[in-house]
Design a protein around this nucleic acid. Structure first.
Length: 477
RNA sequence: GCUUCUUUAGCUCAGUUGGUUAGAGCGCCGGACUGUUAAUCCGUAGGUCCUAGGUUCGAGCCCUAGAAGAAGCGCCA
């Protein structure tokens, strides 16, 4: 087999006159002569010119939409307008025929809902290949940012014996056959006979274990899959999603916010610099889609301009109490336009967060110092004894992207909070040990990987930024 | 889990007040085409009108139940 040159390298490094072999999938075949070939190495396609005299008709007939071919020939300057160079094929080999009479995809716009059902084919489209190249880029940028800043990548468990992580319903893990599980005398399932000798679940967060790392190695982060068995039916929730959770010893809530802002901006900047073709395509896609929409429903800025705006401006920072005051003075509140009440002590609703971010501040907003009753047991109590050192980073269009806090490092206060919130000490003895034996102030946050990708790609549904989405009622592939 | 909307050809959709044989564009299939850029042009085929039951002389259209999908809300990341 001839050694292939990847199309990204052909367009970057190959010279006119070079003889090369390329391999990829046919995006379009026009005039029985022009193949737009894509091999995934970049957004761009290479035009392969089929010469009637050199390629036999039987082969030409098999060059169809999304068929896989190899082409060998000489790179020349293109006579056409759409590209600088093109490959004049001396030989073409069909690597994989495509039976178009049964193939569901078409060389035209298809709905996201339809493509979602064909998840094994959707990565072949411009939109999804762009999204998944960017998904890779974001994952890489995350690891690079933390590595370059002295953090250690820590792998927290996916199967956990703790059910007190406090972040939602869990999927249970067992090797028992349904209806054949051994029971104890009182009729409940006897997990002491199960694989791990106790009840186990899929993790909902690696934070508590990451705190173990931070209190030994200083700065750590987790980046892995997370599972929530919540019956959430929205375009922003998945049952299986990836989460990034840095945890930093000696940091307070303010350093935590600085990290969240710097980190978000770094990732966005990295994608702007390294994936301009993919971003430009996604940007144009949104603009085409919004052409037929009312002006007030369109994005206020293009995708690229939104991303640039975010990295060039400081995030707004307010306390929860200030947020309530601003909301109470707002026009929609005075006109009774909010569906939910605005009162100190209640959680901010999506409509309130959206108004703050999209109408009032018009940029990302960090809200901090929430009432203790609406936040988790491990968040550090403020001096007012009413609020905790928690913060949420809210992004336009998606709402909460990051949720974090300074953790309660004072043993007595942590115990009191656990009692108040009915968290059993015996299950989290190790967590209390971290305070008892050489504890330290520390802080961290959780970032929803798919949510930041939603923001960067401008996609509308979280199911379209993960290759195989798991949602209530759906675990295909 | 709640509210609303949707379901007609492979895809995206139209289908009037309940009335004969169910419509379009794209795709597919066949043909033409050596400078195309979602190529273009000509022609053919293609239907469990989501499912089950009901009303009616007659149902794609009305009623009941169910299924699937979407948007919004709640929970959160």
């Amino acid at each position: 087999m001839a050694k292939r040159t990847e199309i990204v390298d052909v367009l970057k490094a190959s010279k006119v006159g070079d003889t090369i072999t390329v391999k990829g999938w046919v995006r379009a075949f026009r005039s029985n002569r022009f193949v737009a070939l894509n091999d995934g190495s970049s957004f761009k396609t290479l035009q392969v010119v089929i010469d009637e005299e050199k390629i036999e008709e039987a082969i030409v007939k098999r060059i169809g939409f999304h068929a896989c071919i190899a082409a060998t020939g000489v790179l020349v300057e293109s006579q056409g307008a759409g590209q600088k160079v093109e490959l004049v094929a001396d030989s073409v080999e069909i690597l994989g025929d495509n039976d178009l009479s049964a193939y569901p995809l078409q060389p035209k716009k298809q709905t996201m809902e339809f493509l979602r059902e064909k998840a094994h084919f959707r990565m072949r489209t411009n939109t999804f290949s762009a999204v998944f190249r960017i998904r890779h880029g974001v994952a890489f940028a995350i690891n690079k940012y933390f590595n370059d800043n002295g953090y250690y990548y820590m792998h927290t468990p996916i199967i956990t014996g703790s059910d007190a992580e406090g972040a939602g319903e869990m999927f249970h893990i067992t090797t028992f056959e349904p209806n054949k599980a051994p029971t104890t005398e009182d009729g409940s399932i006897d997990y002491s006979k199960d694989f791990f000798g106790k009840a186990t679940n899929m993790t909902v967060s690696g934070q508590l274990q990451a705190e173990i790392g931070a209190l030994a190695m200083g700065k750590v982060y987790t980046f892995g899959p997370t599972f929530r068995a919540e019956n959430s039916n929205t375009s922003r929730h998945l049952a299986e999603f990836w989460m990034i959770e840095p945890e930093v010893a000696f940091a307070d809530i303010y350093e935590d916010m600085d990290l969240a802002e710097d980190f978000s901006k770094y990732i966005i900047k990295y994608i702007l610099e390294n994936y301009p073709d993919d971003l430009a395509f996604l940007d144009k896609r949104i603009q085409d889609m919004e052409k037929n929409m009312k002006k007030e429903l369109r994005r206020p800025m293009s995708l690229t301009d939104t991303l640039k705006f975010v990295i060039e401006n400081d995030f707004a920072r307010i306390t929860y109490t200030e947020a309530i005051d601003i909301l109470k003075r707002s026009k929609p509140y005075k006109k009774g336009k909010f569906e939910f009440p605005v009162d100190w002590g209640i959680d901010l609703q999506a409509e309130h967060e959206r108004w703050l971010v999209e109408k009032h501040f018009k940029k990302p907003v960090i809200v901090r110092d929430y009432p203790k009753d609406i936040k988790a047991f491990y968040m550090r109590m403020n001096d007012d004894d009413k609020t905790v050192a928690a913060m949420d980073v809210l992004f336009p269009g998606i709402g909460e992207v990051i949720g974090g806090s300074q953790r309660e490092e004072r043993l007595d206060k942590l115990r009191k909070r656990m009692q108040e919130m009915n968290v059993h000490e015996d299950e989290l003895q190790w967590y209390l040990d971290l305070r008892k034996f050489g504890g330290a102030p520390h802080a961290g946050f959780g970032l929803g990987f798919e949510r930041i990708i939603l923001f960067i790609t401008g996609m509308a549904n979280i199911r379209d930024v993960i290759p195989f989405p798991r949602t209530p009622g759906n675990a295909e592939f």
